[in-house]
Design a protein around this nucleic acid. Sequence first.
RNA 1: GGGGGAAUGUCCCGAGCGGCAAAGGGGGCGGACUGUAAAUCCGCUGGCUACGCCUUCGCAGGUUCGAGUCCUGCUUCCCCCA
Length: 421
Amino acid sequence: MTSTFIPRSDFLRVLTERGYIHQCSDLAGLDEQARKGEVTAYIGFDCTATSLHVGSLLQIMMLRWLQKTGGKPVPLMGGGTTRVGDPSGKDESRKILSLEDIENNKTGIKAVFSKFLTFGDGAKDAIMPDNAEWLTKLNYIDFLRDVGRHFSVNRMMSMDSVKMRLERDQELSFLEFNYMCLQSYDFVELNRRYGCNLQMGGSDQWGNIVTGVDLGRRMGTPQLYALTSPLLTTASGAKMGKTAAGAIWLNADMLSPWDYWQFWRNTEDRDVGRFLRLFTEMPLDEIARLEALQGAEINEAKKILATEACAMLHGREQAERATETARQTFEEGVTSTDLPHIHIEASALASGLGVLAAFVEAGLVQSTGEARRQIKGGGLRVNDVIVADDRMSLTAADLNDSGSIKLSLGKKRHILLTPKA
RNA sequence: GGGGGAAUGUCCCGAGCGGCAAAGGGGGCGGACUGUAAAUCCGCUGGCUACGCCUUCGCAGGUUCGAGUCCUGCUUCCCCCA
């Protein structure tokens, strides 16, 4: 559907060219709104953790492009829905969080948004409302009378997400069935409060979003629009943002800029072009050139991807530092003093610090048992020398010129152990 | 209300006639090969003061030298009949 339509607005042109669009309820209509500079779009975010992770980055970027092309972005916090516990994940229902936790999480999440969006009171400034503001005030009877009457169960039953569950004989709880009503109502409420006329989200949200569009029509709002992005996986099919080491968090206190840079640097070849378009703001012709690089050359493109993505989140300076640290570590084989480090008591070295304990302390392994196994498999190194003996201990003699000991797990993960002065 | 199933290694799926730290996958981590990629091959994938000790199979008891396995009660989920 996107192939035949040529958008005239900057907003849709950018989103189309860069591959953000999966489905749209009315491209031409939305394009017209965008051309008039009258798009206010929202995307709902859970506040189940103190930070968002890369999985949400695509949505954040869409809001960012919207603002850059003259629209008003509205990241909506799901404080109200979090309070209920969203059951939409088929098997596990999310745990219900306390109010303090939710508030705390909102603070952490807002910090991330402020890196990508400009907040304020201006017409095109971003705002971050919380659906708890209206959802918690709902009265069941009033809601049924004013809103519930507009939902067509017939229509809801025909939605893919519902149909699938019924066909498979899987349980679909009433709460879950209602969840889309609440989400639809959010859209209407946001339209009334802020003139919001577009909801965006991942492709899995399509059903919920168009239900909101429909509700708006029945409740007399101006025309609303739906726009979804493709579900993002790596070329090998893995979900974005989850690794064994944990989620790729966006907050720096949960994942350092260095680790964030490394995440992007380790992108698969096949994903480089796509990721450059989605997660950087580089010109498309430049991306096309980088994407065309063959063999080992494509590593250059990965470095640029890492640096640009890192700069957007953590700032140019942090990104450059990570780039330089990586260059020293991987290309020159020098021990950069800027690698992540942890401090230990100087006295610990005096009496000799066991390697097992040291690696656990550094967080490279979870337990001494794992450290032992890694040693057996040749995976641990101290100052770039493979550890052969698990009874080895570290002393002041192991300190390098810059006064620290380099611990490595595999070829990629390094931590400097530095005694406290 | 009646009848029948299910719950396993704190990532997931999943075997398990009383001797079990518990088969097999997936995923992940490490090694080899490379380019900090992919594919492929190999190893590892409860904890510890470590040739030994401790803790794991929904929860709580019981039988037994010994229980994931047998018995009783409970919780949760699923299916069939009403």
